[in-house]
């Protein structure tokens, strides 16, 4: 049934920004293939013309008025950051702006 190649696993890991060791890659290749095979029982269902349902409870038009009420002070904003400088979050250089 469904088998993922090692390259598939590497591609997904990069998309998901997950660093994987070679052992992990091999492990996920197996586990993901197993789960994909398992979930493929859904292909038994005739789903032609069935509308998709992304929400458990159908609601619509939930909106808020344009009011300011949740801004937080900077110490609370930065309080959990690994690195800060000049009231900003500091990271390694990003050049491809």
């Amino acid at each position: 049934m469904s088998t993922l190649s090692l390259q598939d696993v590497e591609k997904i890991a990069l998309l998901a920004r997950l660093y994987l060791t070679p052992e992990e890659k091999a492990k996920y290749q197996q586990q993901l293939s197993d789960v994909l095979t398992y979930v493929e029982q859904l292909s038994e269902l005739d789903l032609d013309g069935v509308p998709p349902q992304a929400h458990a409870v159908a609601q619509q038009n939930i909106m808020r008025e344009d009011e300011v009420n949740s801004t937080i002070p900077i110490n609370k904003a930065l309080g959990n950051a690994a690195a800060t400088a000049d009231d900003q979050f500091a990271i390694q250089a990003v050049f491809d702006e």
């Binding site: 400088a85 000049d86 979050f89 500091a90 250089a93």
Partner: peptide, 13 residues
């Protein structure tokens, strides 16, 4: 993002 000369970038949200 702003880029500092020391090889860091800063993020303002």
């Amino acid at each position: 993002l702003t880029h500092l000369s020391d090889g860091r970038s800063l993020v303002d949200y």
